[in-house]
Amino acid sequence: MKKVIGLLTAVGMMTAPLAQAETVTVSGSTSVAHVMEVLAERYQQSTGKNVEVQSTGSSAGIRAAKDGTSMIGMSSRNIKPNELTPKTQKIVIARDGIAAAVNKANPVSNLTQEQISKIYRGEIKNWKEVGGEARPIVVVTRENGSGTRGAFEDIMKLQRVVNGHKVTAIAATAQVGNGNGMIKTIVANNPYAIGYISLGSVDDSLRALSVNNVKPTDANIAAGDYQIARPFIALIDQDTPQNAKLFIDFIMSKDGQRIVAEEGYIRVQ
């Protein structure tokens, strides 16, 4: 009997790693995770293969792909050359706009990029300066390491150089929210707040502003007219297991890209 138990234990120990190996692990950007979770669910339904998606932030996702702790990394910001290895492959799976969003009670419907930058720098502090009520602006930003924040700072020129290093130019008084969900909650509950979130995460709890008189729509982003936009990137190592590569193939397929569009993002093919 002991021999049988020992044999079963040994078999279990041998098959456990195989079961884990069959699961595709994905981690990184909370913005990309929004659509990646849907893609993973549809992929599992059609193939029976497991995909685990974790929202850890773009910087963490890039590191995970680089050091092999995840089969696939996710980033919603551009990636620096020193963050990759020669074996790392970058695949743009979708494109997304970043919406400057306000409370639905706010009468302001359009801002210029310059006005938004000045608001985040703390140079414009009251809504009356941009056509709103005479109320202080409550500035809300994402946490450090967020791909959305990184892309927003880059596009809006919200960085400065100190002692040879780039640092944020966003006012220290800005409130910080972790993830699109928290930004939405803060803005939806404060009529004088402004935040920025993935366009695909915008819902009827708040209102996305036009920027430079251009609405944040898929068509305007695809045409290049709406300027606050960024790629959604999947990162894999060339030695990544085949099951992870098959999941990427699904994402880039006609069915996968249709799901991308259904979730409010812009397909890349």
Rank of each mutant, 00 (worst) to 15 (best):
S59L: 15
T9K: 08
T9D: 01
G57C: 12
K49F: 04
S55E: 14
T56L: 14
Q54M: 13
M1S: 14
V38N: 01
Q44S: 11
E37N: 10
G57T: 11
S55G: 06
A19E: 05
E41L: 06
R42K: 14
M13I: 14
T47F: 05
E41A: 14
V53G: 03
K2A: 09
K66Y: 11
A21W: 08
E22C: 00
K2W: 07
N50Q: 13
V24L: 03
G28W: 00
Q54C: 01
A64F: 04
A10N: 00
L7Q: 06
T47C: 05
P17K: 01
S29D: 12
S27C: 08
E22W: 03
K49L: 12
V4Y: 05
V4H: 06
M13V: 10
I62D: 09
S31P: 02
G28S: 04
E41F: 05
V11T: 11
S27P: 03
A16Q: 06
P17G: 05
A10C: 11
R63D: 15
Y43V: 02
K2D: 12
L39D: 02
A21V: 02
M1I: 07
S59Y: 14
M14W: 03
S31C: 09
T30D: 13
E41S: 09
H34L: 12
G61Y: 09
V35S: 02
V38Y: 01
T30R: 11
K2V: 11
N50H: 04
V38M: 03
H34G: 06
A16H: 02
Y43P: 01
L8V: 07
V24P: 02
S46R: 13
A60P: 04
M1P: 05
K3H: 10
R63W: 08
V51R: 02
V38H: 04
S58T: 14
L7A: 07
L18W: 03
S29M: 08
S29C: 12
E52T: 13
G28D: 05
T47K: 07
Q20W: 08
A40N: 00
A64V: 09
G28M: 06
S55R: 15
A10K: 04
G6W: 04
L39T: 01
E22D: 10
G57S: 10
A19F: 07
K49R: 15
T30I: 13
I5H: 06
R42C: 02
M36K: 00
E41R: 12
T30S: 15
E41C: 00
M13G: 07
T25S: 12
E22N: 06
T56S: 15
P17W: 01
G28L: 09
E52N: 11
A33D: 14
S27L: 04
E22A: 14
A19Y: 05
S46E: 15
R42Y: 03
E22Y: 03
I5Q: 09
T56F: 13
V4I: 14
I5V: 13
V24Y: 02
A21F: 09
Q45L: 11
H34F: 07
Q20S: 09
K49C: 00
Q54L: 14
A60G: 08
T30M: 13
M13W: 04
T56P: 07
K3C: 01
A40Q: 02
G6V: 01
Q44I: 00
M13S: 10
M1V: 07
Q44N: 12
G57K: 07
A19Q: 03
S55D: 10
E52P: 00
L7W: 06
Q45A: 14
M1R: 09
G48S: 11
Q20T: 08
S46Y: 00
